[in-house]
């Protein structure tokens, strides 16, 4: 009886100490945030150029005027993003499967897969958009797409499929070889082992890095603006030229953030080990 009372006292003491430590930590965090953020704000707001910057970057009236157009353009970005994402998920997987296959008959395909990845991962995405967007129409072959949105989508798909193929391939390689042995031992074929045993584990493991690549893709969709389509960045640029005011670009930036920040939080949530993800 007395003994538990003694322990309780010690325990209360410890808990009180822990709480006060926590409170002090929170206070320090709040104060330092206030000082840093306030300091930067003060620096910017008192800078000699601030009134001009405020007018040219953060003009409410320009924002209101340009926002509907930019939003309409952003819709094109979102559509393109979704289509390219689906293409990339499938094409990347196919390339990864080809590259990890063992069948001798698939050697030429394996070689092709390696060349594909080296090539399209090695060329800057913006350059690829130029080459595909202006190069393919220049060939003047009938049957090839000429719509700049389609061409831009193809360029983005090539670039991101190459990245995503490597992510998948790393995931496949990270599954212990005992898993394949066990699948073969119960009588599965190589491709059944891949489909039912190895791929499901690999995909769970690479889900966070895959999502990460999609945050990047969502931003890179803006690169098709160099081919002319009226997507958010392009429209914002035009509006900026008309008004001599950069606020439309801020509007576009906010729209991109509205998609990429939630995506980033999802990545965070899934982060750490993909192993626990079910």
């Amino acid at each position: 009886m007395t003994e538990t009372a003694v322990i309780s006292d010690r325990r209360l003491e410890r808990e009180a100490a822990r709480r006060s430590k926590e409170r002090r930590g929170q206070a320090i965090a709040a104060i330092s945030t206030f000082v840093v953020v306030g300091g930067i704000a003060a620096l910017v707001l008192t800078s000699p150029g601030w009134p001009t910057v405020q007018e040219t970057f953060f003009s409410w009236s320009v924002f209101k005027e340009s926002f509907p157009d930019v939003l309409r353009g952003f819709w094109l970005d979102v559509k393109l993003f979704v289509v390219v994402e689906v293409v990339v998920l499938v094409a990347g997987l196919l390339v990864a499967l080809v590259r990890t296959s063992r069948a001798p008959a698939l050697f030429p395909l394996r070689l092709l897969g390696t060349v594909f990845v080296d090539l399209f991962r090695g060329i800057p995405t913006i350059l690829l958009v130029y080459l595909v967007g202006f190069g393919i129409p220049a060939l003047q072959l009938s049957g090839l797409p000429t719509d700049p949105v389609v061409l831009g989508g193809i360029a983005l798909s090539l670039s991101y499929s190459a990245y995503v193929a490597e992510v998948y391939r790393a995931g496949i390689g990270s599954v212990h070889r005992g898993q394949r042995d066990a699948a073969l031992a119960v009588g599965l074929t190589d491709s059944q082992a891949m489909r039912h045993v190895i791929l499901p584990q690999a995909v769970r493991r690479v889900a966070p890095p895959l999502l990460n690549d999609f945050v990047a893709l969502q931003k890179d969709v803006a690169l098709i603006s160099i081919l002319g389509p009226q997507e958010a960045f392009r429209i914002a640029q035009i509006a900026q030229g008309v008004n001599f005011n950069y606020t439309p670009l801020i509007a576009a930036a906010l729209l991109y953030l509205a998609v990429t920040v939630p995506l980033a939080r999802v990545v965070d949530r899934m982060g750490g080990g993909g192993g626990e993800v079910r």
Binding site: G178, Q179, D181, A185, L188, Q192, H196, P200, R204, R278
Partner: peptide, 24 residues
Amino acid sequence: FQAYNLFPHMTALQNVVLGDMRAH
């Protein structure tokens, strides 16, 4: 196997029936 090598993404039952269903 010495180290079991069960399929971690499947339930016990799914582990047992995989071969029956897919191989047999």
